[in-house]
């Protein structure tokens, strides 16, 4: 029987390097910015400890199985043995020590990720983080640059070496903004705002997506992050400001209809913040559905067509609905915390 047990453990040990050899470095362990690299360091540290524990248990198990399997002479058999204060103390204390060793950097990193990454150069120190509102809508992403007064759908440009302060919220379902190369995810929730700091240190194009299940189009809720040199980034902002069409409330409300964005990506002049900040008003999306005549349909309905109204059929869009969202109140963020303490 024992001969058969060995291949199993061998398989497990062999699988690891094989897999590492079989593919390139996994995205999470190939960080492109300071946030992702703090997390990657923590992960590698924990993997080392964990592999040690796995090795100890595997070796012990193998030894015990070999030595104490049933055989003709069982002179080592001692059925009365049923405890050892010393051993039990050892294997209680050692895990405690390991937990403590891992807890310290974990807690330190948790606190560190609450702040924008520390700038490396003196000139960078003078710059505030770039503020981008990332709003999740079933099933697309809207990125808002309030200072630049532009908005993009399903892609974003960021300058390298400068922290980006993502203000996350959702127009509907709970989503999670995740750009593995730049750092871990955080939830987007309607009626609330959460903050995620990320930063790219290398020029490149990175995959970003919604990581939290939101229904039928969840797959497609992806976006590209273009990390550019500062100058290129500024150029892009200018291009958008000069050439992109104006965002109207009707256009924006149409984005709120659940669906995959047909055109892939888009960019607009002006932001949706002039009408609505989803972190302050959770049911705006449902109101927009009503205005446009959208009705949620049973996924198994035979007829899933919608009869949406045209802009000129809706008096609401003929008036000015701009609201003042300029004041940065911290209410919603505190709300987010109050939920689970």
């Amino acid at each position: 029987m024992l001969k058969k047990l060995k291949p199993l453990s061998l398989l497990l040990f062999l699988a690891l390097p094989l897999m590492l050899a079989g593919c390139s470095t996994p995205e999470v362990l190939d960080p492109k910015g300071p946030v992702a690299s703090q997390q990657s360091d923590l992960i590698i540290l924990s993997i080392i400890f964990m592999l040690t524990i796995v090795a100890v248990v595997f070796v012990l198990l193998t030894i015990i199985l070999v030595k104490y399997r049933e055989r003709k002479d069982h002179d080592k058999y001692s059925p009365e043995l049923h405890g050892s204060m010393l051993l039990e103390t050892i294997w209680t204390i050692i895990p405690i020590i390991i937990v403590v060793i891992l807890a310290v950097p974990t807690v330190r990193t948790i606190y560190s990720l609450e702040e924008a990454p520390q700038p490396k150069t003196a000139e960078a120190a003078n710059e505030d983080p770039l503020v981008v509102h990332a709003t999740s809508i079933n099933w697309k992403w809207v990125f808002t640059y309030p200072d630049e007064d532009i908005e993009t759908v399903n892609y974003l440009h960021i300058p390298i070496h400068r922290p980006v302060e993502f203000k996350l919220t959702s127009a509907d379902s709970m989503a999670a903004l995740w750009i593995p190369s730049l750092g871990g995810q955080k939830y987007n929730m309607a009626g609330m705002q959460t903050t995620l700091y990320l930063q790219a240190d290398h020029v490149g194009t990175y995959d970003g997506r919604n990581a939290n299940f939101t229904g039928e189009g969840f797959n497609e809720q992806r976006f590209k992050v273009y990390a550019d040199e500062e100058a290129d980034y500024q150029q892009w902002v200018e291009d958008v400001q000069n050439s992109a069409p104006e965002l109207t409330q009707y256009k924006y409300d149409n984005l709120l209809i659940p669906g995959v964005y047909e055109d892939g990506t888009a960019e607009f002049n002006g932001t949706h913040l002039q009408w609505i900040d989803h972190s302050k008003n959770a049911d705006y999306t449902l109101e927009a559905w009503d205005r446009l005549g959208y009705e949620p349909k049973n996924p198994h309905a035979k007829d899933k067509s919608q009869n949406l109204l045209r802009e000129d059929e809706i008096p609401y869009y003929q008036q000015d609905n701009t609201v003042d969202n300029s004041d940065e109140d911290m209410d919603s963020e505190e709300h987010a915390h109050a939920g689970h303490e």
């Binding site: 997390q39 923590l42 924990s46 964990m50 248990v57 990193t109 948790i110 871990g184």
Partner: peptide, 30 residues
């Protein structure tokens, strides 16, 4: 029961990795 021990240890240690919140931001939902 014997197969349980090594396999469960693999599941358990990755559980400890997931417990480290700062790293979990990268594992969560994956």
């Amino acid at each position: 029961s014997l197969a349980f021990i090594p396999n469960f240890v693999i599941g358990g240690v990755t559980g400890v990795m997931l417990a480290m919140a700062a790293a979990d931001y990268q594992y969560h939902n994956t």
